[in-house]
Design a binder for these strands. Structure first.
Lengths: 236, 236
DNA sequence: AGATATCGTATTGTATACGATTATCGCAGA
DNA sequence: TCTGCGATAATCGTATACAATACGATATCT
């Protein structure tokens, strides 16, 4: 059962999905302005639908809406980034606990297949590699059967993409495949505690690998950004 | 810092908040149809704004949107109810862990004050008593400083209101004050593990107290609902 | 020259209009 | 009486129109 389709009409749904993908795949970079007119023109729909999509995306934290000043791709602060990862760790832990010892053979097969794909795509890091390692977590969430949990994980995953687009190092493949393997083993064994711990450390590792170490020059921008903004300057 | 105001304009925001409150306080009961025209008329705005509000409320799970068939107040199934409580327990656990040993004296004072209020309102169960015991959890979430966590807890809290409106026994005061007291004590001691456990059991208790025991006749409807729906019938 | 006021333009906020889809009701026929 | 069908009404999906606001440029004053 897929996550419920949110926007009202079918066409509105399309706009929503298009924008969502564009943001996640960084065609629209964080902070970029999103004028209703041009977007609608580009997509061949009226402002009405664009606005509707903006609303959804705003709730999901992918765009920011400032009254009378329009929408822009969200530019999460480092604090918000931390918040996202904290919440995500908590929920992914729930995923692991829920799944431990409850995976069907078919599901195990699928997960192992997925990991093999990740391994194959390890060297090349087009958008493919990134997407795959994200997908692994989405799949796990799906398997819990908890639709709400799935929705939250998806949302958090999207936001993580944003965060990495801003603060991440360029070619970090985000998830270590070996950690995924270990996790699957723990889930198979039904060791809930171990699985939860592995998941926790795994996500912690993702943060340090992708985010914390190499932010030398970025850091300057990020630390400076608040001051720039408070002076009315607009950092690129 | 309040949770970011979501809808586009100021007026749209008002509509959103009005509907949200109406649903949470059960002026609009679960399953009730929400025609855009009449709602807009009632609130003195056009369908445009009503639709915008619906969009937000749908993402938060308070209304359901069926294409070409309009909006209605969400009527969560028992499964979805379980999902909500599972996720909530996980996140409230995070709240407890985050807060343990980190509460300022002022915050402790505020929480204790809050609990005293709950005690005072214990006998009478107007909307006041219900709201208070929900507020306690919101306050805790606020104190974490994690804005995203706060938003999620608020959302989950709202959905819990819906669930209780459907499946809850009429006059359950939802939260036991004594459990709130114990939790505060653990937080003061900085005993994260204990606090998390207390929170977990507390929420578990809420479920059993308010939800599981007295569902005799309701049960029938709930068990039958899937079959009814799968045949295209719409239970009232 | 510098600061301030004013106007113009671009963009957003909201309402309305119109075609498309779905629900409701009455009626004919079994 | 019950079922099937068509017309009408109600409601939704989307586009457009108009009003309100914000930003930038020019002009004016000191």
């Amino acid at each position: 059962m897929p996550t419920e389709p949110r926007p009202h009409g079918l066409r509105a749904q399309s706009v929503y999905k298009a924008l969502r993908r564009a943001i996640i795949e960084q065609a629209l970079r964080p902070g970029m302005k999103l004028p209703e007119d041009s977007i609608g023109e580009q997509l061949g729909v009226s402002r009405t639908l664009v606005r509707e999509a903006f609303g959804r995306l705003a709730v999901e934290g992918l765009v920011e809406l400032k009254p009378n000043r329009g929408a822009s791709v969200a530019y999460p602060t480092l604090e918000e980034a931390r918040d996202v990862f904290d919440v995500r760790r908590s929920l992914e832990r729930l995923v692991a606990e829920t799944l431990a010892g409850r995976l069907t053979p078919a599901q195990i097969t699928e997960l192992e297949h997925h990991v093999r794909q990740e391994e194959a795509a390890h060297g090349q890091d087009g958008p493919e590699s990134i997407r795959l390692s994200g997908d692994f977590h989405i799949r796990l969430a799906e398997m819990t059967g908890n639709v709400l949990l799935l929705r939250y994980i998806q949302e958090l995953s999207s936001r993580c993409s944003l965060v990495l687009a801003i603060y991440g190092r360029p070619h970090s493949s985000e998830c270590a495949v070996s950690e995924h393997r270990q996790l699957i083993e723990a889930l198979k064994r039904g060791d809930a505690k171990q699985a939860a711990e592995l998941m926790d450390h795994h996500l912690q590792a993702v943060v340090t690998r992708a985010l914390l170490t190499p932010r030398a020059e970025r850091d300057i921008r990020d630390l400076l950004a608040p001051y720039a903004l408070s002076e009315g300057l607009t950092p690129p």
